[in-house]
Every structure is written in C-alpha cells, then in structure tokens.
Design a protein around this nucleic acid. Structure first.
Lengths: 350, 350
DNA sequence: TCCTGGATGGTAAACGTTTTCCAAACTATG
DNA sequence: CATAGTTTGGAAAACGTTTACCATCCAGGA
C-alpha cells in the first residue's frame, strides 16, 4: 500500500482522474481512448479534452496485465556490433512501432548462456512474439517459447513447432550471381570465408557457394574454405591464414560484409591490392559496403524485407487461434557489383 | 473476463499455483522469490523446488503495477545506424541487465517528431529512468519526464531540472592532442567537418577545435569549417564541398568517425591519397576505425564509460528521495594515432 | 501453568486498466 | 400511447503481483 497521501510531486494520473475531470464514467474513458465506435461524440470530445489537459498517458503495464497482451516483441540477434543488425533493428522497430508494438532487444554474442538469459528476460516481460534473427538455432530456447504458446519466427531453420514460422532466404541466387561474375572475369581459384559453422545459416551459405562453384564447373579446394566468425577480426585472421598457404586463390567470397572488410584490412597490411591481387565479394550489403576502399562488391540481402517479414508473420501467427505451422516467406538476394572484383592476377590465371 | 476455462494449451502459471503446489501461502512464495530473510528455510526450499518444477516465471507487469517500478530504462539515441551507438547500447545493456533492468531503445533520427514519439513511448511503458544519448537536447522532452519525476541523464548539456544529471565529455583534451599532432607534423591548414550544429555536442566539439587551433597559433579559416551531419553521406558531401574550394587544407578533422570514413571515400573517388594528399582525424574510435584503409587516426571517447556513467547516475538519482541536481561525471578522450596522418603535401606546406 | 512477546505465515487490499453485464434512456413501431 | 428494440453509460470483476496488517504458534519468564 502506498504511504499516506503519496507526497511525490506528480503522482501519475490515471483513467480515474480523467473520468471525473470529464464528468463521465471510467468505462467511457476507456472506450473512448480505445476508439470503441459506440461512444457518444459529445462525451468523447469531453474525454479527449480532459486527456489533453491532464496530460494523461495510459499505463501500459496495467493494460497488459488485464488484456494478457504485452504489445512487446522480443528481437534476438547475434551481435549488435555488426552493422547488419542495427539496420535490421531499425526496420524491425519501424514495423513494430507502426503497429503499436515495442521491441525488446537481446544480443546473444554467440554465447549459449546469454541466449538462455535472453529467453528468460523475454518470458518475464511477457512478450507477444519473438523474432530469432540470430541465424542460428537453439532448440532449448524454442521449447520455452512453445511451452508458453508464444509465436516465434526464425530465419532459415524450419523447426517443427506450433506457432513458429520462418523466413527462407534464397542465398543461392545471390551467391550464384557472385560466382558467375567471378567466373566470367576468369577466376577459377575461388576461396570462401564462412561464418561460424555451428550457425545453421552460415553452413547454408557455404553449401550454396560450393554448389554454385560446381555449377560453374569449378572444383572446390578445401584449403581455400576457411571458417571465420562474421566479425572484422575473424575476417582478417581468416585471410591471414589463407595468405600462409602455398598456393593462393585469386578471389575470395565472404559469408558477410564484416568478414570482407576484415579481409580488405589483412590484404592492406600485407600490401596486397584489391582487386588487382585479389577479387573480393561480401554478403549482406550493409550501408558501409559502399564506403569501403575500394567499394565492396557484395550480395544484397534486404534487411527491410527480413524485418517486415518477421513482424508480419509474428502478427499473423498471433491472430490465428489455432496453432499453425510454417508461415514461410522467401527473401531474395542479388549481386551488387562495385569495385572489389576484377580480372584475376596474371601469374595465377589459368 | 476470460472465456470459460481458457482452453489455451499452457495457461501461464502464476504465483498462485506455485503456492498450492508447494503447500504454502502466496505470500510465502512472494517473500521467498524476493529473498525476504524471515522465511522458514524448509518452506523456502519447497517453494524453490516448485518454482523449478512448474517452470514458474514471475510476471513483470503485475510486479511493476503494484510496486510502481517498471525496472525499465529508456535509452534515446540519434541513429542506430551509426556504429558508435550500437557499441554504446551494448555497454548500456550490459550495465542495465546486470542490475535487473531492461532497456527500451528509441532512435530519433534527428527528427523532433520522432523524439516526441520516443518520449511518449517511454512514458507509456513507465520507464524508471531515461538516458538521452543523442548529443542534442530537447527542452520539451525533458519537461515531460521532469513532470513525472523520472530521472534523466544527458550528455554535455546541463539542464536546470530536478532529477537530472549529466555526463561531461572532455572533448578538448582529445581534440587538443589531435591538433597538436597535426601541428607537429607541420600542418597549418586544418579543416573541420562538424556534426549537425543544432546538436549541442556537435557545436561543443567544433568550438573545442577552434580553441585548440588558436592554442597552436593557427588562424582558423572559415571556409574550411563545414557542417556535416555525422553520417557517411554527410562526410562525403562535406569533403566534396571542400574539394571545390580554390585553396585546400592539408588536414581534416572530423566530428565523428563516420564522417571521416565518408571523407576517405570522397578522397578515394577524387583519386586523392590519405595521408599523402590529406591527413585525416576522426572522433569516437569506433571499432571499425581500426579497419579502414588506411586505418583511421582518431580521438577515442570511451563509450563504456559513457554507458556505465549513465546507468550509475540514473540509479543514484532514483535512490535519492529528494530531487537533486547535477550528478556530474567526466568522460575522458585521447588521441589514437594510426595511419591517416602524415606530413603535409609539399605544394601546400608552409 | 499461564501469559507475554517475538517470529513467521496467511488474508486481503491495492496497483490501473479492460470488459462483461446490466440499467437506463431514447427511438420506432403497432 | 405503450411496448419492444437499440443505443449508450455505469458498476464491478478480473489480471498477477506486493505488502500492510493480523493471526497463529512457540518459547521463555513469572
């Protein structure tokens, strides 16, 4: 109970005060601000006037408590420090806020225990849905949400759970364009720096690359397939490892743009030039890709489509009373040619 | 009211069920999970066991409603797309979550109306405190929060409001080091690309630069003081404007790193070399600064200090019963020399 | 043995909404 | 003019907690 008369300066005003100020009942105020059509326009006007005068702001927690809907979406990402995710967050937030939802962000930093913590945080706050945009997959996590009947949306993975949907990214199309582009330029020795392979999507990208290579009639060299971790440092380290190999590829494709930027840096340190010594292709097309030196040729994956797709399927899954499976939508990718690709270096050309 | 028996698979279990499962009263459960010391250890053990078995998760909204504390901090930033802010968010989140707080992010994108919207969102969610890390200042915003007696923390600006504190960044120290560094190399013609000047902090940085220039005995040239907007595009455009000038500076300082990366790009497009043709210094020292080509010399401002300082003073301000003013703390800056600075170009040297 | 007091558990009110159900008032029809 | 039907407003319950207050129980002192 609150002590005495609550001497705090501005005790938060509630629907109650608005009602008495507008000389109507509490119910009328509630109906007015929720736009129930049957309210008498005269009373409604009085209510809105009082709302404005008293600077009334509805208390979302009380609302959530009674309605059972928190109007909150969880957004779980890998790493907020990778510019791809802020771009994704921005679009996700835009889509969510437009529909009256707030968003709760959790970054896993690729650590399973942080993932668990994120899930718990979201459960406590009673999120109405969760978008797992981490390009990886934690079975345990999913169970928690499924147990509470909370809609979940994933990228790539197709879990067999109620109220979950997934966004299918067509990695192959963009990667195929990239490989073709390199092949046309004359490259036959193409390396690939993947993301952390325990991430399902990273594996998928690598497999798509391998497949595209085969389509182009190129035999993949396992030494040129190195695992990175989708960070700047990881890209740099991976490239340094490649540079220690007895034979070098003439072109490198990367699992994301941050990796590619790391590669550019490793090449800079080794006094090698892009695209003269190495051609380079990234993935994601973050805004920064246009600003690297030289500007990065990369495969664009629209994070706007991703974000909007996620919000849309979350919403759809909430509305449907019955638990349904697999609301799939496809996300396209395509090559954006800039200046990190060119003819292969003579000494290494076929 | 809920319909009939709520046929939803797993109706959220509450403290009530835990109580009956552990054969104690709900009060005992509440006290146990809130670690009230007077609970009989035997009962406490039973409670914890039930909590684990039933997978009970407390409902934060109900908690918030009765306690009046939402355990939620608002974090208002300019633009999530600028990598400085994700780094800040990461630190802020870390500090907040460690203390049991959740964070609500709002980006203003420099638009006043979005600022207003953010404030309203935070008010609705009943945040316990707001960190305005937007390096700008909106009087109206502040009033809203002050009216509800919500603690606020700012950067730089020193508003005269109850329950607000501010973090004072010592821009001058780092900028001074930067100017000295350039002066020692022989630069006398130094330009500055500022942030949007209606942002208080951007103005402050520019003033600090001007002051440092004077200390180094250099007369500022107003043509070389151009306004950017703290984005990549803004930096590029600003540099392009400078390149159209009849006389060029030999070095450029930027109000943030994104601007500097934009400048590098403009220079690349104009086939000018850094640092051969222009020396360049950024500000912030985002992680990416180490990875530009060539790596960017920049002034480091610790966003960890910033974030932790913000959380700490928010917390301090909440605990103090009386409204108090000005919990100041100082944030240091210092120059990190990398490879974008060198001797001035001969033709322009003094 | 009885009473007092300290510990500890239980009951119920309160937080600020939404929403169901009912009552009242008005409209239209016979 | 009366009655049925249709709006529209109001009272009260419910959401899941915390916590003030009260009841109970046990130990120790008189």
């Amino acid at each position: 109970m609150r002590s005495k008369t609550q001497t705090d300066g501005a005790a938060r005003i509630g629907i109650h005060k608005v009602a008495s100020h507008a000389r109507v009942s509490i119910a009328t105020v509630s109906r007015t601000i929720n736009h129930v059509p049957t309210v008498n326009p005269v009373l409604a006007a009085r209510v809105w006037k009082s709302v404005a005068e008293l600077n009334y702001v509805p208390n979302t927690q009380a609302r959530a408590l009674v309605s059972g809907k928190s109007k909150l979406f969880g957004l779980i990402i890998s790493e907020i420090t990778n510019p791809f995710f802020p771009e994704l967050i921005q679009e996700f937030e835009r889509a969510a806020v437009a529909r009256g939802y707030e968003i709760l962000i959790g970054s896993t930093n690729y650590e399973p225990e942080k993932m668990e913590l994120c899930a718990r945080r979201m459960l406590e706050r009673n999120v109405d849905g969760v978008a797992i945009m981490t390009f990886g997959f934690e079975e345990s996590l999913l169970d928690r949400f499924a147990g509470e009947d909370i809609p979940v949306v994933f990228i790539d993975v197709t879990p067999r759970h109620p109220r979950s949907s997934n966004l299918q990214v067509d990695y192959r199309a963009g990667i195929y364009e990239g490989v073709q582009h390199l092949a046309v330029l004359g490259h036959r020795k193409i390396g690939f720096i993947s993301g952390p392979l325990r991430l399902g999507s990273a594996e998928t990208r690598k497999l798509a690359f391998l497949d595209c290579l085969r389509c182009a009639g190129i035999k993949p060299q396992s030494a040129w397939l190195v695992e990175g971790d989708h960070t700047l440092d990881g890209g740099r380290d991976a490239m340094q490892r490649i540079l220690q190999l007895p034979e070098w590829p003439t072109a490198i494709m990367c699992s994301n743009d941050m990796t590619a930027i790391g590669v550019q840096h490793a090449l800079f340190e080794a006094d090698l030039k892009v695209p003269a010594d190495f051609s380079l292709i990234g993935f994601d097309d973050i805004h920064l890709a246009e600003y690297t030196i030289p500007p990065l040729t990369t495969v664009r994956m629209s994070c706007k489509d991703l974000a909007q797709g996620a919000v849309t399927s979350l919403l759809a899954n909430m509305e449907s009373t019955q638990s349904r499976f697999e609301t799939r939508s496809k996300i396209n990718t395509r090559l954006i040619v800039r200046q990190t690709t060119g003819l292969p270096k003579m000494s290494s050309a076929i």
